[in-house]
Design a protein around this nucleic acid. Structure first.
Lengths: 235, 235
DNA sequence: GCAAAAGTGTTAGGACTACACCCATGG
DNA sequence: CCATGGGTGTAGTCCTAACACTTTTGC
């Protein structure tokens, strides 16, 4: 299928991989899924989920393939972050990596798959040192995540279908490592008009009980400016 | 130098290219430099500046190399945008492209180099259709440019060393395709404290004459939030 | 004097912060 | 009845939009 106008350049072809920074949210903590590497070099050390990009697929497809294979989920939110190509970044070969982050609802898939792969969820602050330049990749993914969460109401892909405003606020607290004011957070979030209140209350976190909300079924939440200004956080 | 732990994967190696969206600002218009393609396929059609990523270099280095070769400039501002890898995106072969945008001060390099390459500056609105997926790459670069210009005072790499507030405002008008209010723009921009007023006036644009400014010599302008809110633009 | 951009001042409104305050209820 | 989160209200602050107004100077 592929033409070969470029057949003179066989010698500068390179291996392409994808690396996935997998975020989950559980136990009121933002967590990352990392893996005990099963191939050399650095076999046995912690790394991000990776995989090769095959000839007949895009990096998006490759990332989706490895994520699907791991989790069994058919839809996984993923977003391209950045591409790393410095020679020597992978001691095993001259590999270019396209980085993605993925958002997983931890409650939706079994831990069986995780243990099969020697994987483990770590809270951000407990994350061990990772191989190669993967520590940098994590920082880049977090930056992108934070940027995204500042431009649109975020949480659809990390929280369960139904959640309280408190849960959402705690997620934001985690992402920005700051305490949002409960009253102001509530008003701001509801004013965005992207949440739908259900006629159901959750009483596990308060005597009074809090309404459950879910994200409205809109194709994409378009907000033409920052959701949260820098000063929206206390102190 | 390179190990070959991955020698089983020779067959999925791919060609990597860089494509550069080159922005310039001249005649009060934001312009793009595009090229008459000199190789097949699509030889003779308009395209972005591209080049192969060699084995011993990163994509950043490759982009810098082709930009330097074109312009003769030793420092060029460039930023990675996104990576495109869909099979078939380049009819000439199975090529993965890392996209960069670059900012050029049009007055700083000769048009000789440009004509040697069959290149031409186009104002955004006059841009012809480009080969492959390059039209999409241009949109992505513009999005990234606009995002950047909303988070920090922008123009250092597009304007001459010395410029008036009017020039800066017209650049912002161009980037956002909107009319900023002269009085408010001035106050906002000066309040950011990143510009230095020179004891020099430019009288070409008004009888009264306007002070020239330049960007202060700070390593990087750190602003922890949007410079311009969405509502900063008129109407 | 007039036009046109430079530059300053002012006012109104919107958004956000901080915090007070009431509500509901399980223990 | 009290502690706790749920939820509402509000004063004050900050930011900015809109626009009036003065300045300067070449023509």
């Amino acid at each position: 299928m592929t033409n070969n106008y470029y057949s003179d350049f066989e010698s500068i072809k390179r291996l392409i991989s994808v690396d996935c920074v997998i975020f989950g949210y559980d136990d009121e903590q933002l967590k990352l899924l990392v893996f005990k590497r099963i191939i050399e070099p650095s076999k046995g050390k912690w790394s991000l989920l990776g995989g090769w990009v095959k000839n007949d697929e895009s990096s998006e497809e490759a990332a989706h393939r490895v994520l699907h294979h791991l989790t069994g989920l058919k839809y996984i939110y993923q977003e391209q972050v950045e591409t790393f190509s410095k020679p020597g970044r992978d001691p095993g070969g001259n590999v270019i990596t396209v980085e993605y982050y993925a958002l997983i609802k931890i409650d939706e898939f079994t831990n069986q798959l995780i243990s099969d792969y020697g994987a483990k969820w770590f809270a951000l602050k407990d994350l061990p040192s990772l191989i190669f330049d993967h520590d940098i990749l994590v920082v880049k993914a977090l930056d992108k995540l934070r940027l995204k969460a500042s431009y649109e109401l975020f949480g659809k892909h990390l929280l369960p279908e139904k959640f309280t405003i408190l849960k959402l606020r705690k997620l934001y607290n985690e992402i920005y490592q700051k305490e949002f004011d409960p009253a102001n957070f509530r008003k701001k979030v509801l004013s965005l008009n992207v949440l739908e209140r259900l006629e159901e209350k959750d009483k596990t976190e308060s005597r009074k009980g809090a309404y459950l909300y879910r994200f409205k079924d809109v194709p994409e939440m378009e907000i033409s400016g920052p959701v949260f200004r820098k000063s929206f956080v206390k102190k």
